[in-house]
Simulated assay, not measured.
Amino acid sequence: MKLNYKKIGQGPALVILHGLFGSADNWLSIARDLENDYTLYLVDQRNHGDSPHHEEWNYKVMAADLVALLDDENLASAHFMGHSMGGKTVMNLAMLYPERIDKLIVVDIAPREYPVHHQSILEGLNAIGLDRISSRKEADDILAEYEPIPTVRQFLLKNLSRKDQKFVWKINLKVITEKIENVGEALSFDHAFGKPTLFMGGANSNYIQDKDKEDIEMYFPNSHTIFIKNAGHWLHAEQPTAVVETVKAFLGKGQ
């Protein structure tokens, strides 16, 4: 599958992947602070953003999508950074295609299984009848019955677009709803990824816990974990300067 992506900057290639319900634009401000040192590829994963929709949606095919992107760009390898679901994608890429990765950054997710915890959001999104609403305000009012936090609703409704004067979902809501359990799947491989890897968590998030240390060290023996202060799961939005400095320190500025 040919993924949609934005390409900016100059220098070694760094591919950045968003999380569930997100898009390439989620990391644009971070990319702007890195573009003098790296060529950034901000990717829409399949069934998200402006990338194609497909019934097949799992980490194996999402990893293969990244290989296709590298091939199209004539890149033998690149640095990769993925947040949340995107972190699981790049971890699977590391296991399946280790030769395509130079250094790996996994943002606020661990290799373990995560139980489904997006059911109310999915119920809310599916409750929005696209043929019955006439404004984004109406969509927000419906979603508010399922998700009380305005900033979360604002993020989710970035997936609502207009086409031919009608509202449409940019995400493949049907497939995501049907296959949401795939997002939480644990890594399950009998080998490790030996290249330099950074796990970057939010100090106020519970996505990376002490119990994850064993799995992280088993699959990524050449790794270390740091936590960004005063940040939760959306650390790139909450502490962008700290995230940029951490990325540069790990990858090596301009190297």
Rank of each mutant, 00 (worst) to 15 (best):
A192F: 15
G194M: 10
K170A: 06
R100L: 04
G129N: 14
V243H: 06
G22K: 04
D25C: 08
I109K: 02
E99C: 04
E214L: 03
D164W: 07
M91E: 03
T177C: 00
A94M: 11
K170Y: 13
S29N: 13
F189H: 12
L198Y: 02
P98G: 06
V116D: 09
T177A: 11
D108N: 05
V183I: 15
V116A: 12
R46A: 06
V90H: 02
L157W: 06
A242V: 06
H48S: 01
F80P: 03
K103C: 02
E138C: 07
L251Q: 05
I30E: 01
N230T: 14
D71E: 12
I30R: 02
D108I: 05
D140V: 06
H236S: 02
R153L: 13
I30C: 01
A76Y: 12
I105L: 14
F227G: 00
G22H: 04
L251D: 00
D44S: 06
E123A: 09
L173T: 07
S134I: 12
G82D: 04
A127K: 12
Y41R: 08
E178N: 13
H83M: 05
I228F: 10
P98L: 08
S77Q: 15
K158D: 02
G194E: 07
D33A: 15
L173S: 00
W234R: 04
V247M: 12
N182D: 07
L143I: 14
Y97G: 03
L130S: 08
P12T: 08
I216Q: 03
Q165V: 12
E56F: 15
Y41L: 12
T177G: 04
D102F: 02
A110S: 11
F227Q: 03
Y5M: 10
L173A: 06
G254P: 08
R112D: 04
V106C: 02
D72A: 14
H117T: 11
S223T: 05
L173E: 03
W27H: 07
I128R: 01
R112H: 10
T241K: 15
